[in-house]
């Protein structure tokens, strides 16, 4: 008798819990990151929560392993599958190792997208890149133009400080920069040098540039190591106000140089927007509002999908004196 009573009450409790969970939100999205406790991903979660608030009927489950391993992420994804979430949006630790478990998730009716760091095509429906190569190239030249105007306007010599000569990403971005350069008649590219993503070599290459090109106004460094070293070199050589450094870098590393004036503005993807867009895309997939060629990202716009389901979110986000301190605390 007692046993029966216990069973009955436990079943009742379970039923109540199921009901309350079902009412909490119509769409549950698992936002899986490379590891918990990383500023960049905490910021992405902030964006995801913003999207959830805006949509109203969404619950975002922010989760990830303690260290950046594929096995840890698989364990986390396993428990999301068990909870029967509606969508999983993952920034993957391993392009290939996550494919089998994500295939399983899709087989159980869960929509899967990857963002930031992608997984193989078989494991997801959409991959959201933070940006695209043409957009990155264009942004770098746009920033150079802003910096050239700050340095006095008129004709301006610019130089590029890259990583290694064999770095695939860097070379693609430099090509894209050269493609849009003719649209800016005032900018004159005088040199491309390589700092190998080493702080001391980048520093020496920058000093070389400053010595050999006395009319240099702007140094564009689309590498987070190079941009810091170049800014330091400009400061040490007393060229602040005459030569500006710009490119791609991290707010936490560049906040000081923005204050000193060596850097006017720079760009990198905005993690808050990335988390927001990933949540929006997941929601629209669940609701069947995505087509084979495009899907809405809410306030950010519409993502165009290529044949493999790849999308680019937006051009890199610009950081300057007005917002760099706020983001320096995040990443």
């Amino acid at each position: 008798m007692v046993f029966k009573k216990v069973m009955a009450s436990s079943l009742l409790a379970a039923a109540v819990m199921t009901a309350s969970l079902a009412h909490a939100a119509d769409v549950r999205v698992g936002l899986v990151v490379k590891a918990l406790g990383i500023g960049f991903f905490e910021a992405a979660n902030k964006g995801a929560q913003e999207a959830a608030k805006e949509l109203g009927d969404v619950e975002v489950i922010y989760t990830g392993p303690t260290s950046t391993t594929a096995e840890g992420q698989i364990e986390v994804i396993n428990s999301l599958i068990a909870q029967k979430v509606d969508a999983i949006a993952v920034s993957a630790n391993d392009t290939d190792a996550l494919v089998p478990i994500l295939k399983k998730a899709q087989k159980r009716g869960i929509k899967v997208i990857s963002w930031d760091s992608g997984v193989g095509k078989a494991g997801r429906q959409i991959h959201l890149n933070p940006s695209s190569n043409p957009l990155i190239g264009e942004m770098n030249i746009k920033l150079a133009d802003v910096a050239a105007k700050a340095a006095g306007g008129g004709k301006a010599d610019i130089a590029i400080l890259s990583a290694t000569p064999t770095s695939t990403n860097q070379n693609i971005w430099i090509d894209e920069m050269k493609k849009v350069l003719p649209n800016y008649a005032n900018l004159n590219l005088v040199a491309t040098v390589y700092g190998d993503d080493l702080a001391d070599k980048s520093y020496r290459e920058t000093i070389g540039l400053l010595k050999s090109h006395p009319n240099l106004k702007v140094i564009v460094a689309p590498t987070s190591v190079g941009i810091v070293a170049a800014a330091q070199a400009v400061k040490d050589q007393g060229k602040i106000g005459k030569v500006f450094v710009t490119g791609l870098g991290l707010p936490s590393e560049l906040a000081g140089h923005v204050k000193s004036g060596a850097v006017k503005s720079f760009a990198i993807w905005n993690p808050i927007d990335l988390g927001y867009a990933a949540t929006m895309i997941s929601y629209n997939l669940v609701k069947g509002k995505a087509t084979a060629s495009e899907v809405s990202m809410g306030r950010i716009g519409t993502a165009k999908l290529d044949a493999d389901g790849n999308a680019a979110m937006a051009e890199p986000f610009i950081y300057d004196a007005s917002n760099v301190d706020e983001f320096a605390e995040i990443f």
Partner: peptide, 16 residues
């Protein structure tokens, strides 16, 4: 494990 992951990287089973 290799069969479950369908791939091998040198970090496989790290910390197990």
């Amino acid at each position: 494990l290799t069969s479950r992951l369908g791939s091998t990287r040198p970090t496989i089973a790290l910390g197990w």
